[in-house]
Design a protein around this nucleic acid. Structure first.
Lengths: 227, 227
DNA sequence: TTACATACTTGATTCGGATCAAGTTTACTT
DNA sequence: AAGTAAACTTGATCCGAATCAAGTATGTAA
C-alpha cells in the first residue's frame, strides 16, 4: 500500500504556489526539489535548528508547534498536503522557533535557499505565485488575530468546526483531526471547556457527537452565527 | 512648515521593501509610483472599495480599522512612515474589508497592480525584497496570534507600552498616540481595564502617569516580564 | 472664564471560562 | 478478552476581566 507516494513531478503540482507555472518552469523547479518521507511520529524539524530550506508537505500531515516563553507548546499549524512552512528561510538564514512532527507517514519536498534564489531570477512568474500565496496567508492571520480578540470561545470553536467539516460531505460523521486537548490549545482554551461547548452545540441541535473523536455538523449556518 | 513633504525618490527610500534595490531599479520604481497627500481626518480608502493598489505611508500616520461582523470596529494597524497596506491588491483585485483614516497630514505613495506586475518581471530582485518583508510580517502576525491566546491582558498591555515607548528616549514622558478607548479595542479589552492596569503598573513603579495621555516608562524590563 | 462634551477613573456586581478534583470512557497492549 | 494508561466528561469552585453605574478630569468653544 503506497498509494500516497508520488513522483517528484506530481509532488510539485500539488503545491498551490507552483500551480501557475508553465511546463518548462515546472521542470526547472523539479530539478532543485529534494524529497524525503518521514515515518509517523518522527520530527521534520526542531526548534533551534538553522533553517535553510522551504518545507512542503506533498502527502501526509504534520503538526507545527511553537514553544512559548513559559515552556508550554502552542499548536501553530496543522499542515496538510500542499501546505508549506519555513518560507522565511528562503531569504535569510533563520533559526527556527517552532518544531514539526509527522502525524502519519509524510512525504516532504524541500527546496534549499541557494537553489531557490538562483531559480527565482530565471522564473519571475514563480515569485508572483509565492507572493500571492503569502498575501493569502497574511489575510488569514489578520483574520485570526482579529477573531481571537473579538469573539468568545464558543464562536472560535464554532468557526474551527465549520472550517474543519468543510472538507467532508455535509452532515456526515467524521473524525476530528486533532485531539480535544490539542484543539483546546490551538483555540487558547482548555479541554474541559471544549467538552462543555460541544455539549451545548449538540443540545442546540447544531451537531451530533459520535464515537471517539467523531462528530457530524448538522447546521453549519447556525454554528457560523455563534458570536 | 513642510518639512514632512518629500520628493518621490526620498519617499521610496523610506519603504523597507525597496531598500535593497539598486539605483537603476529604484528609478524604475519611481516611474510607477503615484503620490498623494491626505489631510488630517480624511479617508485613505474605505471598506467595500475595490483595491487595485499598494498603499505606502511616506510621511504621516494613519489608522486602519477592520469592521467585525457585529458592526464593531477593530483597530488593525497604526501605520507609520514606511508602513504599507493593501499588498494583496498587487496580485488579484480584492475588495477591502478595512478602512483607513489619516491621523495627521499624511503623504502616501501608491502603486497600481498592472504597473507593479510589469515591473516585477523586469526586476526579480524586487520580488525577493518583497517576499522577505512578507515573511517578516507573517512571523509578526504569528507572534501576535500566539501572544493573544497565551498572555493575559496585563501582559499584552505591557508589550504594547514597551513597544510604543521604544520610539521615545528612555524614562521620559510622552503622549500615547492612541486614546485609551482605542488602545482598549486594539488589545481586545475595555478602557476601564486599561485604566486599572496602568494604575497597577504605576504602583509597581514600572511607569509614571502624567497629564492627559502622557506616561513615562520607568522600567521597561520589568514591564516586558509581565506574564 | 464659564459651560458643555468627551474622555477617563473608580467602585460594585456579574459572568465566562480556568482550575481543581473525581469519575468515566476510549484505545492500546499483551 | 483483560488490564492499563491516556483521553475525555462532569461537577464545584475561583478568578480575571466585562459590564453597569456613578463620579471626576480634560479639553474645547463661546
Amino acid at each position: 500500500m503506497q498509494e500516497h507516494k508520488l513522483g517528484t513531478h506530481d509532488c510539485i503540482q500539488l503545491v498551490p504556489i507552483f500551480n501557475q507555472l508553465t511546463t518548462v518552469e515546472l521542470q526547472q523547479v523539479s530539478a532543485i526539489v529534494h524529497e524525503h518521507v518521514y515515518e509517523k511520529g518522527t520530527t521534520l524539524f526542531n526548534a533551534g535548528d538553522e533553517a535553510n530550506q522551504l518545507t512542503i508537505i506533498a502527502a501526509g500531515q504534520a503538526k507545527v508547534y511553537q514553544l512559548a516563553t513559559n515552556g508550554r507548546e502552542q499548536l501553530l499549524y496543522l499542515l496538510q498536503s500542499g501546505d508549506f512552512d519555513g518560507e522565511a528561510a528562503l531569504f535569510n538564514p533563520v533559526t527556527r522557533t517552532s518544531y514539526a512532527e509527522a502525524l502519519v507517514p509524510t512525504q516532504v519536498c524541500s527546496i534549499q535557499r541557494s537553489d531557490f534564489q538562483a531559480l527565482l531570477a530565471e522564473a519571475p512568474q514563480l515569485a508572483l505565485g509565492i507572493l500571492n500565496e503569502f498575501g493569502k496567508r497574511i489575510s488569514q492571520l489578520e483574520g485570526k488575530a482579529t477573531s481571537v480578540t473579538t469573539s468568545s470561545i464558543g464562536g472560535r470553536l464554532a468557526d474551527y468546526l465549520v472550517e474543519t467539516a468543510a472538507s467532508f460531505p455535509a452532515q456526515t460523521m467524521f473524525t476530528l483531526p486533532l485531539q480535544k486537548k490539542e484543539i483546546a490549545v490551538y483555540l487558547g482554551t482548555t479541554p474541559e471547556t471544549i467538552s462543555r461547548k460541544l455539549n451545548e452545540f449538540q443540545i442546540a441541535g447544531w451537531l451530533k457527537k459520535g464515537h471517539g473523536n467523531q462528530i457530524a455538523v448538522l447546521d453549519a449556518d447556525q454554528l457560523a452565527l455563534q458570536d
